[in-house]
Nucleic acid binder design. Structure first.
Lengths: 130, 130, 130, 130
DNA sequence: GTGGTCTAGACCACC
DNA sequence: GTGGTCTAGACCACG
């Protein structure tokens, strides 16, 4: 099931991207599996098809999914991580921001490490990247 | 020193907010200390004063800083963490998204934990929250 | 209808905030209902859109309204009161100040209680909070 | 004792005005009594003398206090309430605003009436106005 | 000097 | 179409 929060400040198309990636990591959907068509998914979550389209395009650009003309779109069977140093730096920056927030909410160093470890555990079971 | 990247997709006023919070955690600026005035800082980083204003207002709303009429704005001396469960959940969600990204960039569980621990180390030395 | 007095010493954006909150309590506008868009309302009351924007942002921060990307802003359907003790104390303080003023204008204890009761009656009919 | 919060959004001179009025109503200071001189009070609460000056001026304009040249300033012995209808309307408006806030904090009609009655009780014991 | 508010006008991302 | 951000420049209240 896909759920999306249109009231969130995060763009809907990004929510979808993240949702699909997370489901893959967890093994809820697996490489080779077919995704709902743009129109299907749009109806399922009552979202403008253009928005779904954009999410799929982005995922395809990242080679997380592939579209086969006339067949549909599928989870890529041979995903290769990027390891682009610049992007990793940006990621670090975004994570740092969240850690600052966490500290400001009163979470201690150990609380945070535990929380992160727990979240990582949740992401096991699906595909192994790298 | 304050640096800001106007080309970033991240709003300038948020960059300022994050920068100040981070500096406080690191102890680079300390409770009670005076921040540059809106106009001063605006000149320093050649940003419109309104943008600085907005950053300061947000920080005041979060009780990270206080402004004293006619005197200027100061780092709050008695910050209290919120510990709002709902906000912690939102934070967890945001962190989870970043962890998914990290895994997709090919970082392994251990890489990530190390990275997070490293970032937390950088945030030591300043005020103790909670 | 929205009316605003630009000559008042009270900031326009706050007048708008108060007006909307009051209308919700009275049931003039109801949860789920769409508010005029920033530009629309700006034209309606011939106020700069930025000022409307600021009012809406503040209301969103208080979770009185929600904005949905590309759709507009709506009265929140699930408002939860804060019940923050500190804020209640601040409120008490502000009310006390007004009561002092009321007494100085020659209003007697009973006059004031009656006045308050009357005002509370006007705020009936809309949503029930808590 | 006078206490004043320079970090409040309310102007300091107004805080002083309200404080003095409240003390008179409660009977903490009584008609005919001498107030501290501008300079004295300024030193007592470490505030700019100009600010005290402005508070005293305003109180004098409202005939709450009187200044006698060379003697000092005293609580007026013959205060007469204004009963200016326009000002009463403004007061009602300010009170209505606070009642809206109270409702939004989850206080019920009865809670509020009780709170107001309690605050009014605190203002007994001093001078009788009207 | 300080911050607070407002206007006019612009550009952008999202749906 | 929607809201979100930013700039430039102005005026005001406060201390």
């Amino acid at each position: 099931m896909f759920i999306v929060n249109p009231a969130s400040s995060k763009p809907i198309y990004q929510q979808i991207i993240e949702d699909i990636k997370e489901k893959i990591l967890k093994g809820i959907i697996t490489p080779g599996e077919k995704l709902p068509s743009v129109r299907e998914l749009a109806k399922m979550i009552t979202i403008n098809p253009n928005t779904i389209q954009r999410a799929y395009q982005e995922l395809e650009r990242e080679k997380v999914i592939v579209t086969i003309r006339g067949k549909g779109t599928f989870i890529s069977t041979e995903y290769q991580p990027k390891r682009n140093q610049e992007e990793i730096n940006e990621l670090k920056d975004r994570i740092k921001k969240e850690l600052v927030e966490a500290r400001y909410m009163g979470l201690q160093r150990e609380d945070i490490l535990e929380l992160v470890a727990g979240l990582l555990d949740q992401l096991e079971g699906g595909i192994e990247i790298d």
